[in-house]
Design a protein around this nucleic acid. Sequence first.
DNA 1: AAGGCGCCTTGATGCAGGTCAAGCGACGTG
DNA 2: CACGTCGCTTGACCTGCATCAAGGCGCCTT
Lengths: 248, 248
Amino acid sequence: MTVSSLAIASAALATDACDSCPIRHRAVCASCEGEELDRLAEMKTYRSWKAGDVIAMEGDELPFVASLVTGCASLTRTLEDGRTQMVGLLMPSDFLGRPGRRMAAYEVTAATDVTLCMFKRGAFEVMLADTPNVSRRLLEMSLDELDAAREWMVLLGRKTAREKVATLLAIILRRASNDAAPLRAQLPLTRDAMASYLGLTIETVSRQMTALRKAGVIELDGTRGIACHDLAALLTEAGDDEDGTFLS
Amino acid sequence: MTVSSLAIASAALATDACDSCPIRHRAVCASCEGEELDRLAEMKTYRSWKAGDVIAMEGDELPFVASLVTGCASLTRTLEDGRTQMVGLLMPSDFLGRPGRRMAAYEVTAATDVTLCMFKRGAFEVMLADTPNVSRRLLEMSLDELDAAREWMVLLGRKTAREKVATLLAIILRRASNDAAPLRAQLPLTRDAMASYLGLTIETVSRQMTALRKAGVIELDGTRGIACHDLAALLTEAGDDEDGTFLS
DNA sequence: AAGGCGCCTTGATGCAGGTCAAGCGACGTG
DNA sequence: CACGTCGCTTGACCTGCATCAAGGCGCCTT
């Protein structure tokens, strides 16, 4: 409403990680007009967690919805006997919390240090109801997540351990480095978290990582750093080396 | 707009499977007002497929969105080497097609005989844009599907073959019979489709079905009929019978 | 009636990935 | 410094499911 809040809004529009938008993405900001941005700016608060912190347990009251600003968080489901499967991996600009449902359906854990931009449910849902641009964007984001979940199901149901690990590494490498070989990244996940993502055990993940390294398709730098000159090789040739060239 | 179309709308409201609503569900119809129902009635057309028919291949142009009226259809993804994983199972009132994307992202196959209620994309999207009730309902449905996909991921990633089969049977039994033991159903899926759903082979599905029958937790009637007096037993005790009582 | 086909079941065997166990390097703490 | 812990790796072994193969049953066609 005031000149200063509009100035903040314009500044936000100049970056990809828009600061004033619940969905934290330029595509939305571009369609948010002044008044909406003002309302959002008044609703939001920030909060941070350390790597490993549990942000919410399954069944907890989650009195906010939020947009992930920095870091990486996971959604996991645990069966009665303790088996656990990751079912969501949130990266910056991803949305957390379901409008209209206060209970957390999954355990939410900070994989790395995390900052959330949080909105009180009441205010957010009022805004959703009378801001078609934002609700349409939220629908798009849900459908993108559904597509991602379906790709993930193919991975869980049909891929071999080596393909699983290669696929996950490729996803992370692509997100981290915007092209320009060699692709490099710091893994935001522990081996445990990777195993949970992939439906494998930690030992199998570890073995496949060293197998990929020995096959020459990736390089490891310490326990978190990875590099890859050829994503295609990672994804297709992974599992060759039949003559054992790299093992001798 | 006319008296007769309003009459049709009211009649539709009296049943759960609403005939005039793109989302085919009373919850939506209850929030759809007269004018919207009229517009929907003018947009829709019906079309049927036989069991086994391919409704759309991955990458096909899908010039409509639709609501599944009767029967059961599957979404599947196939890897380059032919491995295939089901990633969606549509039942009556489920929605098919993504607004804003004309390409089919998955192969759509009729599991049983199927009828779709179809809407031209252009008209549907115009209506979406200025009908908040319907677009909100579509968001809810997407989020429900996302939850279902995540349950499915737990199944694919962490459950044993026996648990997988038991879980699928329980889902079908619950949908088919509204309580009142013994639960009975005709499976809408072939063993092949079940294997595709579960990330297993057809042989393993078959073996687990007979194991569950021998353990006494289900009965089989021909190849498609199943019954179960005790869902809890199916889901928890599945895999016991350690002393072989039922095998002697 | 014979033959063929689609769908399902059952058996024998092999292997990918799980399980159990040991050890290693980095880091923090008394 | 010794010690414990945490995250990771590696090895040895085992098992659940895939694979390969055969056969049964219902149904259609000729």
